[in-house]
């Protein structure tokens, strides 16, 4: 049971990162490989606030998210916007390029030595039944569920959400409704970067803060997104949770080294049975 619960914590982080990927993909039809590195940079920025400026955790956290939003918006306005009508493969290569650039720049600015990163909430474990939770774990789960709920509500019930869904389906028709599609896309990038940033700041206390910290998370987030169908927001989170738990079970019962292999074996099997992913409609299949 304890293993499953620990798995859920990782799952939440994967889910958050996947949520950012899916949101950007759903709206702008683009897979953002730089997502993990943008999250890593955001986490370093929060660390700078914490250690250099000696701000409190909450202030640093919020300022870092503000940074993430601006960062995401700048990447879209400055770079991705120009490539909007480029072939998807070119856009993909550009996000891969950004991945490298951000990784290199972060190394130049913050160095390559891993540093410790504080948890959001310190404190002793709480026992519930036979399972131990640290307050930080509860925080991670709480924030994942809250963010998922918020974005689900925004997407489904607000005017901005409606504009996002419309822009994702038909750019020209959206313009004819008076929607400023480019601004909607920029906002989506900002939100995606925020989600990634949260995932980053949740990851850092577990893995140490260094420029490679998001590699595994990004891969798992991709896996989670694919498992969830890549178009479904709840799917991304559920995919993340499944992968987190599965990975932890494998690491405990079989071998920690092989957890990545087994996780992807699971994904291959799931996608073999349901090519559109668990939550994917028929539409995602046609797209391929």
């Amino acid at each position: 049971m304890q293993i499953i619960v620990s798995g859920l914590i990782f799952g939440c982080i994967y889910g958050l990162a996947a949520l950012g990927l899916v949101l950007i993909y759903k709206t702008t039809d683009l897979v953002n490989f730089a997502q993990g590195e943008m999250a890593m940079v955001t986490t370093f920025v929060s660390f700078t606030f914490l250690s250099q400026f000696e701000m409190g955790y909450t202030t640093s956290f919020l300022l870092a998210l503000l940074f993430a939003a601006v960062f995401g918006a700048i990447v879209h306005q400055g770079i991705m916007k120009r490539l909007q009508s480029a072939p998807p493969l070119n856009q993909l290569v550009v996000t891969l390029g950004l991945f490298m650039v951000f990784n290199g720049l972060a190394g130049l600015i913050w160095g390559h030595k891993p540093a410790g990163y504080p948890q959001a909430i310190k404190g002793d474990s709480i026992k519930m039944g036979s399972v131990f939770f640290t307050p930080n774990e509860i925080f991670v789960m709480g924030i994942t569920l809250t963010l998922m709920l918020i974005f689900f509500v925004i997407f489904r019930y607000t005017k901005v959400g409606l504009a996002m869904r419309a822009s994702a389906q038909d750019i020209k028709a959206s313009q004819l409704m008076g929607i400023k599609v480019t601004n909607v896309f920029t906002a989506t990038w900002a939100v995606g970067a925020i989600l990634g940033g949260v995932a980053g700041m949740m990851t850092a206390p577990i893995t140490f803060l260094d420029t490679h910290m998001m590699f595994d998370v990004l891969i798992m987030a991709f896996a989670a997104a694919v498992l969830g169908g890549f178009l479904s927001l709840p799917g991304a989170v559920v995919g993340g949770l499944i992968i987190g738990v599965f990975e932890n079970l494998i690491a405990f019962y079989l071998s920690p080294e092989l957890k990545l292999v087994y996780t992807f074996l699971l994904i291959i099997i799931v996608l073999y049975i349901r090519p559109q992913g668990i939550f994917g409609g028929t539409q995602s299949v046609k797209k391929v």
């Binding site: 389906q169 038909d170 028709a173 409704m177 929607i179 539409q283």
Partner: peptide, 25 residues
């Protein structure tokens, strides 16, 4: 306001949502 060729309704939005987005501005 232009009603484009081939209709171009938003296929994944409901009829109600399509009408609502017409009033976006």
């Amino acid at each position: 306001i232009q009603c484009p060729e081939n209709r171009r309704v938003f296929p994944l939005l409901t009829v109600e949502e399509n009408l609502k987005i017409g009033a976006y501005i």
